[in-house]
């Protein structure tokens, strides 16, 4: 009788320890990923390689960010696109079109449109969602799991400004760095997959420096983004993130 009670209590405690440790774990993972590219400011040089069945091109651009709120991108090559710039402040977005010397604000209806012909949408550039705040998350299982990865399922809160119905994320067990993310659309069909590679320590942070985005149902199409150079928490003139600067041809 006595023995039995002790056994039950022990089992109960053990079970709770297991789940408590798992919950602590996943919060840490999410926190880490949320902080990964987040910094007060950043300045970098990025290469975007766009591959489609019809053409293939590589864009180079300079990029500035300020907290999670502001982003400024200016294309430096190829020549035909040189000077094209994008400014985003919160969830608003403007493009500067050098050929016509015009600033065009992207209307909300066009947010899902492609940015510069890449597989990234305008929304991807604008989005400042926090996994921590916008999603419910839990560990999950996948087919053919790799032992070195953790798998997390993210389901957005109902009112979260998110277009995906679900995201499955693979994270390295040792470093909590993302390995891949699979994005599911409205009808829970796989819409696209992003792979993270080339983990390097740049500007004081250890991050994957290459991201490959592969859309589903678009054969032969993908976009690869590489950080050629990045610094975090540097001094940036806040004027960079202004329409005036957008329009000035640097």
């Amino acid at each position: 009788m006595h023995k039995n009670i002790i056994f039950v209590v022990l089992a109960f405690i053990l079970a709770n320890i297991g789940s408590l440790s798992a919950e602590a774990d996943i919060d840490q993972v999410i926190e880490k990923i949320d902080q990964l590219y987040r910094s007060n400011t950043s300045r970098g040089e990025v290469e975007m390689e766009i591959i489609t069945p019809h053409w293939q091109r590589t864009l180079r651009m300079d990029m500035w960010t300020y907290k999670m709120e502001k982003t400024f991108i200016r294309i430096t090559s190829p020549a035909r696109e040189e000077g094209f710039a994008t400014l985003r402040i919160d969830d608003e977005m403007w493009n500067y079109l050098p050929q016509t010397d015009q600033v065009m604000k992207i209307p909300p209806s066009m947010m899902m449109g492609s940015w510069m012909g890449s597989d990234f949408t305008n929304d991807d550039i604008v989005r400042e969602s926090s996994l921590f705040e916008d999603y419910d998350y839990q560990f999950t299982e996948v087919e053919n799991p790799q032992p070195e990865n953790l798998y997390i399922k993210l389901i957005p809160h109902e009112d979260a400004p998110v277009v995906w119905s679900e995201i499955i994320m693979a994270v390295g067990e040792s470093d909590y760095l993302p390995v891949w993310e699979k994005f599911y659309g409205e009808n829970h069909e796989l819409a696209r997959t992003m792979y993270f590679r080339d983990i390097e320590t740049v500007g004081g942070k250890t991050i994957p420096t290459e991201m490959e985005l592969i859309p589903e149902n678009e054969e032969g199409q993908k976009t690869v983004v590489r950080y050629l150079h990045i610094e975090f928490n540097v001094d940036i003139d806040e004027d960079i993130f202004s329409l005036r600067n957008l329009q000035s041809q640097q």
């Binding site: 019809h54 091109r57 035909r80 696109e81 493009n95 079109l97 050929q99 016509t100 015009q102 012909g117």
Partner: peptide
Amino acid sequence: VLLSQGADGSIANAK
């Protein structure tokens, strides 16, 4: 002002 993309992937922009 029109903004789009050409068949070669380049930015198509004209006024």
